[in-house]
């Protein structure tokens, strides 16, 4: 695996991300009156974040370091933690509880499995 992004490159990433925040949040507030958001475009924009985050989270949980191979076993501490957090979310929208339970399950699994 390559080295983490650091130094000047990290500064460039931060400025780039800040620009992405600015451009998306101000887009229609600054755009001319002629620009309209069509239904199809709105649907794509609405579901883009969920899809991107799913594409990040699922490999992060199932292909964890150091091996980075598919680990669907119930001995996978990240899978246990995520399942616990997901179960909590079905029951309550409280994020602190979700993180607490998820971290507790993850930590116990790492220690004892």
């Amino acid at each position: 695996m390559t080295e983490p992004v650091a130094g000047l490159a990290l500064g460039v990433v931060i400025v780039g991300l800040a620009l992405s925040t600015f451009v998306t949040r101000t887009s229609f507030l600054l755009a001319g009156a002629k620009l309209r958001l069509g239904h199809r475009a709105e649907v794509a924009l609405r579901y883009a974040p969920v899809c991107t985050l799913a594409a990040i989270i699922v490999p992060d949980i199932l292909m964890h370091p150091p091996a980075h191979v598919l680990d669907l076993s119930l001995l996978n501490p990240r899978l246990i933690g995520a399942l616990a957090a997901g179960a909590w979310l079905c029951w309550s929208r409280n994020i602190v509880g979700c993180l607490g339970l998820g971290m507790a399950a993850y930590s116990l699994a790492r220690l004892y499995l």
Partner: peptide
């Protein structure tokens, strides 16, 4: 995770951008 993995800069920024796309709807 992309920064930690040393992904190319454009991949990192583009990922942040897609995650931010919902704000386009908000601003509209």
């Amino acid at each position: 995770p992309l920064i930690v993995a040393g992904a190319p800069l454009w991949v990192i920024v583009a990922t942040g951008l897609i995650t931010n796309l919902r704000f386009v709807i908000y601003s509209a």
